[in-house]
Amino acid sequence: MAHFDETPLYEARNIGKSYGSVIALSDVSLKIHAGEVIGLVGDNGAGKSTLVKILSGVYQPDKGQLLVDGVEHSWKSPHDAMEAGVETLYQDSGLAPDLSIGSNVFLGRERMRPGILGKLGFLDQKFMEVEARKDLEKVGITIPASKRNVSQLSGGQRQAVAIGRAVAWARKVILLDEPTNHLGARQSNEVLGVIKAAKERGLGVVFISHTLPHVLQVTDRIVVLRLGRVVKDAPTSEFNAESLLGTITGLSGSRVEEDETEAIA
């Protein structure tokens, strides 16, 4: 379990973000400690993906601060966040389907050929294909052949490659936006295993999912977003399936909601 008096690995303070007239986030704060899994939950459109994209440098927040190890940072691009050790799995595909698995794993971080050819800009494609395979195996994902194009993989296999890439590169924090999307029951359980392994490595993990039993099973702390605001941020032990659903929908205690909870659990 994390020590909460320590400086968080990554912290967001009072983040605000609007898309034109739509206020996606207002005054959202979040702390991610080493070895801690945070569940980020909320209804469709609650602002989860927007928060992830701010944490990963895709968007700049309108308000608020981002702190890595207690030091304020502002990302000009996702590249800056990656440099700082923050890796992300995006809900909308983050892979280039026409590129090979190996090229995708190394996208933006290519290995160049040694010597003059590398200086001239040529890639060590073979190294990347071999290394990508090893990287993915290390996090428990075995792929048919890393030379294959991602477009030739099934939805679940693509998802596995995207997760593997994020986990393989992460040095501090890993943001997983609905990683169990497209996955069958067994593969979803494997993803939960990957999350636990990342936690054991001392990474901070943000896990977004609509499958509440998964969230309750794997997280240390749950942050509930509703209409762009944090409505609850508490240790997972303080929730059960019913109270979590009630917090998400804001209809706690009603009879209707209890039935829903049972249906989901």
């Binding site: 996702p78 992300t88 995006y90 983050g94 892979l95 026409d98 090229s103 996208l107």
Partner: peptide, 17 residues
């Protein structure tokens, strides 16, 4: 490689830095 990756998925390319 970047030429193809941008044509294949611009968001993924941007997200990859």
């Amino acid at each position: 490689k970047y030429t193809f990756s941008i044509g294949s998925n611009e968001f993924a390319s941007r997200a990859a830095g």
